[in-house]
Simulated scan of single mutants.
Amino acid sequence: QIKIEIHWRLHPGPGKEPSFEALWERKRTSTLTSESIYQLGREDLFLFLISHGARHGWSRLRWLLDINQMVKQGLDWKEV
């Protein structure tokens, strides 16, 4: 019951994005499996979620709930 969404870029079209190297330095490793699964760092994920939701007109309430949970768990706002 887990959805995995793979992206080649953070955002469609032209635009400034962090380099792969910068994202890789800030990556997190999932603890859900015995194999390493890498994911965006918390602050990178937060920025992705807010831009993704805005791009889709906040068509899913679940996205706002995810963002709310991240804020409750704490973020390094200097990094955001």
Rank of each mutant, 00 (worst) to 15 (best):
K27Y: 05
E79M: 08
Q73M: 10
F48E: 01
A22N: 02
G13Q: 02
I2W: 12
S30F: 07
W77C: 01
E17Y: 14
I37P: 07
S30N: 03
K3L: 15
H52D: 11
S19A: 08
Q73K: 10
W63M: 07
L61N: 13
G13I: 04
D66N: 12
I4H: 13
K72I: 13
S34Y: 10
R28S: 11
S36Y: 09
L40R: 00
Q39M: 15
V71E: 09
E43Y: 02
Q39H: 13
P12I: 11
Q73Y: 04
N68P: 07
G74E: 03
N68Y: 15
L10P: 07
R28C: 12
I67W: 04
P14Y: 08
H52C: 09
R60Y: 10
R62T: 12
G15C: 10
R42M: 07
R60N: 11
W8S: 11
E17H: 10
A54V: 06
F20V: 04
I4A: 14
H56G: 02
V80R: 00
W77Q: 00
H11Y: 13
L40I: 06
W63P: 03
Q1A: 15
L65R: 14
Q69S: 10
P12D: 14
R55N: 08
L47R: 02
P12A: 12
L32A: 12
F46E: 02
T33G: 02
R26K: 08
V80Y: 02
P18R: 01
L45M: 07
R26A: 08
K72V: 09
F20I: 03
L40A: 04
V71L: 10
W58H: 08
L75C: 05
Q69G: 08
G41V: 04
D76N: 06
H11F: 14
H7T: 06
A22T: 10
H11W: 09
V80S: 00
R26Y: 11
E17A: 11
E17C: 09
Q73R: 11
K78D: 08
L64D: 14
E43L: 00
Q39I: 11
E5G: 08
W24T: 00
L47T: 05
H52G: 05
M70A: 01
K16S: 13
E21F: 09
I50E: 01
W63D: 13
R62S: 12
P14G: 14
L10R: 04
L32C: 08
D66R: 09
L10T: 12
D66M: 13
H7R: 09
R28H: 08
V80W: 01
L40K: 00
M70G: 02
E25L: 03
Q1E: 15
S59A: 12
V80D: 01
E25A: 04
K16V: 15
Q1W: 13
I2F: 15
T33A: 03
G13P: 07
I6T: 05
D44Q: 01
G57D: 06
I37L: 14
G41T: 01
S30T: 03
T31H: 10
R62N: 13
R62E: 14
K3R: 14
E35L: 09
G74W: 04
S34Q: 07
I67V: 15
G41L: 01
